[in-house]
């Protein structure tokens, strides 16, 4: 079944993961900015959102594996 899975699905998931990863890079920059400004709460907020995005990427990948 997975062999017949349309390649577009894989590509779509990949695009989502790339998008989430790009956002994570931005959030890492925000966390570093918080570090430089001695604002730990900003750094933690950015990290929390980044962790959510990482979890999202993981879910997308698991969806791909199950397919």
């Amino acid at each position: 079944m997975s062999r017949n899975r349309p390649i577009q699905v894989t590509t779509a998931v990949l695009v989502y993961v790339i998008l989430l990863f790009s956002l994570q890079i931005f959030l890492l920059v925000v966390a570093v900015e918080g570090f430089l400004e001695h604002d730990a709460s900003l750094a933690w907020s950015a990290t929390a959102i980044s962790a959510l995005l990482a979890a999202g990427s993981l879910l997308f990948y698991r969806h791909l594996q199950r397919g």
Binding site: L28, A46, T47, A51, L58
Partner: peptide, 13 residues
């Protein structure tokens, strides 16, 4: 890499 970036953010925080 996504998990690694989130982990890096955790270390920075």
């Amino acid at each position: 890499a996504s998990v690694a970036v989130a982990g890096s953010g955790g270390i920075v925080s």
